[in-house]
Simulated assay, not measured.
Amino acid sequence: MTTGQRADARRNYERILAVAKAEVAGQGSDASLERIARVAGVGSATVRRHFPSRYALLEAVSRAGVDALVEYADTLLDAGVPARDALLDWLREVVDHCITTRGLLAALSYVPQQGLVSDNSCFTSVRDAAAPLLARAQAEGAVADGTTTGDLLELVLGIVLATDGHPGRTVTAHRLFDITVAGISPSR
Rank of each mutant, 00 (worst) to 15 (best):
R92S: 07
L17D: 11
T3D: 14
L152A: 06
T2L: 11
R175G: 01
T180L: 13
G141D: 03
L116N: 04
R92F: 00
G165E: 05
L57H: 05
V19I: 14
Y13G: 06
R38A: 08
A45K: 12
G103Q: 04
A25K: 06
D74M: 02
T180K: 02
D67S: 13
I179Y: 05
R63Y: 01
H166R: 11
I16S: 12
T3P: 04
H50D: 06
I99L: 15
G4L: 12
A131K: 11
L157E: 06
L116R: 15
H50C: 02
V70A: 03
V181P: 12
S44H: 06
S32M: 08
A131V: 11
L57K: 06
I36Y: 08
A79H: 10
A64H: 09
V181W: 12
T100S: 05
T75D: 15
L57P: 07
P186I: 07
A86D: 08
R127A: 12
A22K: 13
L133S: 07
D85W: 00
L87G: 04
T101Q: 15
A18E: 13
A20Q: 09
D30R: 14
A86W: 05
S29L: 02
K21P: 01
L76V: 11
R15G: 03
D67F: 00
A142W: 01
D30P: 00
G146V: 07
T180V: 08
V42C: 10
V47R: 08
D128V: 05
T149V: 14
R127Y: 06
